[in-house]
Simulated assay, not measured.
Amino acid sequence: MERGEQTRRQILRRAAEIASVEGLEGLSIGRLATELEVSKSGVFAHFGSKEELQLATVRAAAKIFVDEVVTPALDLPPGVARLELLLEGWLAYSERRTFPGGCFFYAVQAEFDARPGRVRDAVAEYGRSWNALVRETVEGVPDLAVDAGQVAFELVAFLEMANAQSVLHDDPAAYTRARAAVRSCLDRAIG
Rank of each mutant, 00 (worst) to 15 (best):
V141G: 01
L85W: 04
Q109W: 02
D113W: 01
V182D: 11
V156M: 00
A114M: 07
Y93I: 10
F104K: 08
R9P: 03
R31C: 11
R177S: 02
K63F: 07
V182R: 06
V134H: 08
V182F: 15
F105T: 12
A174Y: 00
D113V: 15
L55C: 14
S184V: 03
L133I: 07
L55N: 05
L168Y: 12
R97M: 11
M161N: 04
P100T: 11
Q109R: 06
T7K: 14
V146W: 09
V146L: 11
K50F: 07
S41V: 02
R179T: 08
L144Y: 14
T71C: 07
R13Q: 13
L53H: 09
V146S: 07
Q165M: 10
L186C: 02
V80S: 08
A174T: 08
R82L: 05
F44M: 10
W130A: 09
P172W: 01
A122V: 07
P77H: 00
V167Q: 07
V138A: 02
A73E: 12
I11N: 09
A81H: 07
R128S: 11
A60I: 12
V134P: 05
E37H: 15
E5C: 11
V167I: 13
A181D: 10
Y93Q: 10
L24C: 14
L12S: 12
L27M: 09
E68A: 14
A16C: 04
A180G: 01
L159R: 09
Y126A: 02
A124D: 14
I18P: 03
L74I: 04
D171K: 01
E88S: 13
D147T: 06
V123G: 03
E25T: 09
L55M: 02
L27C: 10
I29K: 05
A189R: 00
G30T: 15
V66G: 02
R8I: 11
R96K: 08
K50M: 11
T57D: 09
V66S: 02
L74C: 00
M1I: 13
A45K: 14
W90C: 03
A56T: 04
H46T: 14
Q165L: 15
A174P: 10
A132T: 14
E111D: 04
A178K: 04
R14L: 12
S184M: 12
G48F: 12
R183M: 13
M1H: 09
R31F: 05
T176A: 10
Y106Q: 05
S94P: 00
A152L: 06
L32K: 01
A173R: 08
F47R: 09
H46C: 09
T98K: 03
R115S: 14
V141I: 11
A62L: 04
E136C: 05
G101R: 14
D113T: 14
R118Q: 13
T137D: 08
Y175R: 02
E52A: 15
